[in-house]
Amino acid sequence: MITMLANVTVPDATVFVIASLIIIGGALGVVLNRNPVHGALCLVATLFGVALTFLEQNADFLAAVQVIVYGGAIVVLFLFVIMLLGVDKSEGLGKEPLKLQRFLAVIVGCGLLATILILAHINWATGATSASGPVSSTTTPNINLLANSIFTSYLLPFEATAALLVIAVVGAVVLARRRTVVVSDSFESPSDSQDVIHDPDGDSGASDSGQDEESGVSDSASGTSDDGHPQIDRLFEGNEEPQDTEEEESLT
């Protein structure tokens, strides 16, 4: 350990120690914070620390992209969703139904860490350097080298990422779109369907999961068998109504 730190200059060591502290402290904050908003802010700290280590290792462009894309876009998206859904209340490590799970998770984490460190110590790297160009040179900056590699050797994966982004955008639109009820001519009135839904709730004292599934199944079954009208999207829409009524019943 001493020999590994022998030739390190003081500024390099200082930057590394500060970056490591920011990274690990931020990561612990993400895991341990009760409030998801605070967790997202700790995630920003971790991302900045990682960007700092990128800067120190000749990855200038990636450090900038790390700050812009991760810290600027992804975390803001997280915060948007947290505040849009209003789940920024304290629900954290206090109430955990599975007592054994946390213990096992820590054991798994320690085993994972030990495995990674042992595997890294074996040093599987073959030593064959510069298969696709050097990281840094005295004449060409890092961003030019990276762009050369991306737009020549890795052009096909780059275009595949374009397709991936388009697919992600379309998927997000499809998922976020509010579903509309697709019914052609005659439509079962909501009061009828709610009566049908309420039946299993009143009869059986089953758990929440059982009630939800039963109500969903009975809803779809009633839509097709009783009246004979095919209802396409009623199954998904019907899930909202019994959930609300169950909550009211549990409150009263």
Binding site: A59, L62, A125, G133, P134, V135, L146, S153
Partner: peptide
């Protein structure tokens, strides 16, 4: 990427992003 002086590591990071 820095240890092996190979730019491919940074390209992979770009795709991971």
């Amino acid at each position: 990427a820095r240890m092996l002086n190979d730019i491919a590591g940074q390209v992979v990071v770009f795709f991971v992003l």
